[in-house]
Structures are given as structure tokens and as C-alpha cells.
Design a protein around this nucleic acid. Structure first.
Lengths: 239, 239
DNA sequence: CGGCTCTTTGATAGCCTTCAAGCCCAGTGG
DNA sequence: CCACTGGGCTTGAAGGCTATCAAAGAGCCG
């Protein structure tokens, strides 16, 4: 159940048995969301944080003109909404991109962790910092890379993150996003996203059909993306 | 000395005298950096975190082709590099954009805070989450707003943040950035940044000369920017 | 008065958006 | 079983925003 979160954390630091036990106690309340449903609404004040157990979700904002920008994608094992704990008031929404199963973790319980389990606190903090690092990569890609490179980068990142939680099969993984949704991640129009995707396919580095991505040539893809996984902090060390 | 950080935190939650006393003890080592100097280098493993006391600094990444993207600007009172504490290995650099005075805070001391001062820990965590919120705003602006709107948004944000630490005079503030540097923040070419800046000047909403910004019409500027300060978490409440 | 960096301007090219329409496919209902 | 329907995908064309190239003005410092 909670295994994905533990996998996520254990890729960054060692966990004691006691800490794992506490993590397992996190999940007292579970909820399901249908594709397209809001998991957390903008301007709400959640009293619990949500942890992804199954499915994909997205952090997003809408502009006045009604366009959408997705600022982050969240996978099983991501503590999606740890942000709401210190932030209190949500400045953005979180939507289920596929059928989702999530755990709701009461903020009172999180407060208790900050008061009694400093190491676990630092690891939770770390998770939100890695979110920040991923956002910085997105900013760099949006500002200084081509659409093709940006898209390649996104696939590289998703592959690495899904691998951590054992959701890859070889160089292939499930990605339940439409091209419209992908374009909202990259900040491109759907037409241009489609054409960019096709250049990657034509180059033979990638296949993407029926919600499944297969990376055909990792080396060329990561070269196109200028992908350097340092920012994902995938090293076990004392934190 | 440490006043700016305290101002920053006190705009988000109440601090006890004991907490303030601990904050004042943070600064044991102070350093100066010249404009253009690296405060923290990419791929380094800092043993201390840096806190801005005076001046502006920028978080940046370079691409293979040598272009630069600035992912965040940091002002006095910003705990710039709290990130390095749980992240350990820097995936980006931090550069002084003006002469800077910074405090170096030993990570051992921060660990002690996470172990003995849970509320202060949550407030430090909050600071990094606000950094994340600002990055999300940048992503939205880069992906779904025009250059003009994005630039206007940056000025709105800087104004609000500088106001918190008493570095504004009326609607005016010092901004020691060249247009080249501004263009690296927005992910635009310097030529286009210049032309965009001039449309804001021509509209009469803003003046920017000799490193000083004056907002002439806040309402119109924030309308152009679609600026909503919610993401800055400028509310005092229990965290 | 140079020499430097920063700013500004003009011209051209290209990436990306928008608009529009056709295609594919799965689900639905007759 | 098959036409119908709707969402998602694909393609083409035209236009606009932004990048690049180039060069001239402006301000500062030695």
C-alpha cells in the first residue's frame, strides 16, 4: 500500500524500522477519484495531505483566458500535497489524470511527526524540495530548450521516477495522458505538441501509443533532452 | 542583521521570543560576494546554507549551448539555500547579482533546529515551499502568458516581496539587474525583453532606469500580469 | 578621450499558435 | 450487426510572436 512512498524515500536515505512503521500508520483514510476529478481544489484549505497510491495526478493553474498550465505530474509514491501542510491555503488545484487511489493524511499527524521524528521530517521536506528541483528543470526547459528537447526531457524524467517505484517494464511505462494534457504540461499548443511528438517518433527514439511510452533509444533521447538526473537526488545518503 | 528573515517569517506566522533568539544565533559567519561571483557552485556539497542579508542573488542553470536560465531571484531575508540542507548535492548554481552580504549557517545547526524546534522547522520548510510556489507561477507565466504579462508579473512579485522586508519606497524599489539578466529570468532573448519592457513603459504603468523600478499604475500592472498574490502566503496563521 | 558594457533599433528568419478540417477508434443504441 | 457519435489524433495553411543578426546610441570609468 504505502510501499511506493517507502521506495521513494529509500532511494534517498536509509529508513529505520520504526520510521517505516510510522509511515505505514499514515494511511487511515483512503479515497478514490475518477479521471478528471479534482483531488484538491484551488483556494481550499485542506485539513489533510494526499499521498498517491495509484494513478497519475497533476498540479495545475488556470489563467483568466481559460488556458491551463500543469506545473507538476504526480505518480504513485508521491506525497502530492505535503505542500498544503505548511502552506495552508491552496494557490492551485490538483486533478486526477487517471483513476486514482489516494491516502488522506491528517495534518495533525504530520505536525506530530515534525515534533517527534526529525529525520522523517527532513525526508518529507526533501520530497517537497525534489518537487522544487523538478520545477526548476521545467523552467529551464521552457525558457531555454526547444519543444523537442523539452518533451524528451519530460519522458526521461517520467521514466526515472517511475523506475524508482517499479512502474516500468524495461524501457516502457504506462502514461495515461492525452496529447492535450501533455501540451498543458509543456506549455505548448496541442497542434505543436503533436508535431513535436512525431519528430521524436520519426527519429526512432520513442514510441507513444494507447497510453504507453516505450523508449527505444535511451542514449539519444537523453542527449536530445540534455538530461542530467542529478536534480532527482537519487542517492542514498544521510539527510 | 537577521531582521529581514524575521520580517519574512513574521508575515506568515507568529514567532516566540525564544524562536527569535535562536534565529539571531544563526549568524556566526558572514561573507561578502562581488557582483557576478558564485555564492554556491553547481555540483558542490555545501556544509552550510546561505541566508541573504544584503543584495540580490539568482539561482541558475546553464545549458550545453551556453545559454543561461535563472530559476529564482533571492532578496534580503531569503534563506536562499535552505535547499542544500536536505538535498546535499547542488544541481544548480547561485550567483550574486549585486554585491551581496550573506550569512553562512552550518547544517549541523539546522539539524539541531529540526530536532528541537519543530515550529521553526515548519517555518523553514514553509520558506522553501513558497520558493516552489513562485516557481510554479513562473511556469504558468512561461507556458501560458505573453512576454508582456510575464514581465509585468515579475515586477509585481518583486514589489510584494521587497515590501515585506521594507525595501520599497512607495511604489519604487531598487533592482540591480541588467536587461540581459532579466531576459535570463524570463527565458526571453535580450532583444525581445527590451522591446517588451518598452511596451510597459509606453503604457505608462512602469519606469525602469538606472537599476530602479517605479510602478506608476499598480492596478493596471497587476491586471496585465493577472497577478494574484495568494501564492506568496502572506498571511499570519498557525503553521 | 577611448574602451567597455548596457541599451536600443531595424531587418529577417523561424518556431509556435491559431484556425480549420479530416481521420481514427471505441462506445452506444437501434 | 451496423450506423451514429464524440473524443482524441493528425494534417495543412496562414499569421504572429519571438529569436537571431547586425549595428548604432548611451553611459560609465580609467
Amino acid at each position: 500500500m504505502i510501499d511506493s512512498l517507502i521506495l521513494n524515500l529509500e532511494h534517498r536515505d536509509l529508513l529505520t524500522d520504526d520510521e517505516k512503521a510510522h509511515l505505514r500508520k499514515l494511511i487511515t483514510l483512503e479515497r478514490h477519484f475518477a479521471r478528471g476529478e479534482d483531488i484538491v481544489q484551488e483556494r481550499s484549505r485542506p485539513r489533510y495531505s494526499t499521498l498517491m497510491l495509484e494513478g497519475f495526478s497533476a498540479r495545475y493553474k488556470l489563467t483568466q483566458s481559460g488556458t491551463r498550465q500543469i506545473t507538476a505530474l504526480h505518480l504513485p509514491g508521491d506525497f502530492v500535497d505535503l505542500h498544503a501542510f505548511p502552506l495552508r491555503l491552496m494557490d492551485h488545484g490538483i486533478m486526477a489524470m487517471s483513476p486514482c487511489r489516494v491516502a488522506l493524511v491528517d495534518h495533525g499527524y504530520l505536525t506530530a511527526i515534525t515534533e517527534g521524528m526529525p529525520h522523517l521530517t527532513r525526508l518529507f521536506w526533501l520530497q517537497t524540495l525534489i518537487d522544487g528541483a523538478m520545477q526548476r528543470e521545467r523552467i529551464v526547459a521552457m525558457g531555454r530548450k526547444s519543444a523537442k528537447s523539452h518533451l524528451a526531457h519530460l519522458f526521461c524524467e517520467l521514466f526515472m521516477r517511475l523506475k524508482v517505484v517499479n512502474l516500468t517494464e524495461g524501457y516502457s511505462f504506462s502514461l495515461p495522458l492525452t496529447q492535450q494534457e501533455l501540451s498543458d504540461v509543456l506549455g505548448l499548443s496541442i497542434v505543436h505538441l503533436n508535431k513535436t511528438l512525431q519528430t521524436l517518433r520519426r527519429d526512432g527514439v520513442l514510441a507513444f501509443e494507447s497510453e504507453r511510452v516505450t523508449i527505444l533509444e535511451w542514449d539519444r533521447l537523453s542527449e536530445i533532452a540534455e538530461f542530467d538526473p542529478t536534480y532527482l537526488s537519487l542517492q542514498v545518503e544521510p539527510r
